[in-house]
Amino acid sequence: MVTITFLVTLVGTLFLIAGIDVFMYKQSFFISIYKLFAEDQGTNEIYVDSALVVGFILALIVDFRIHKNKRSKES
């Protein structure tokens, strides 16, 4: 559940950011999305990308924990 929430929120915010770009710079939606994922030269986006991955893993771990707790409670 946490993972799903994580993904939905992520997609939601990305759409929001892309939408703002579309509105501001009158470019097509796909270009905006593409620009979000394109690795800009000379920046360190890899840091936040890895942070995102860590966040995803943590979400998975938390989900796993919840699952395990539930199961142990049932038994």
């Binding site: 559940m1 946490v2 993972t3 929430t5 994580f6 929120t9 992520l10 915010t13 990305l14 950011i17 703002i20 620009k35 979000l36 800009d40 986006e45 936040v48 990308d49 942070a51 995102l52 860590v54 966040g55 995803f56 943590l58 979400a59 938390v62 919840i66």
Partner: peptide
């Protein structure tokens, strides 16, 4: 989602970090 918010702290924090870089070039 009806889960304690503590579960979301770290994942959402990662999203905030990511977005704060992505919102603008």
């Amino acid at each position: 989602v009806n889960l304690p918010y503590r579960y979301f702290v770290f994942p959402i924090a990662a999203i905030i970090c990511y977005c704060s870089v992505q919102i603008s070039a």
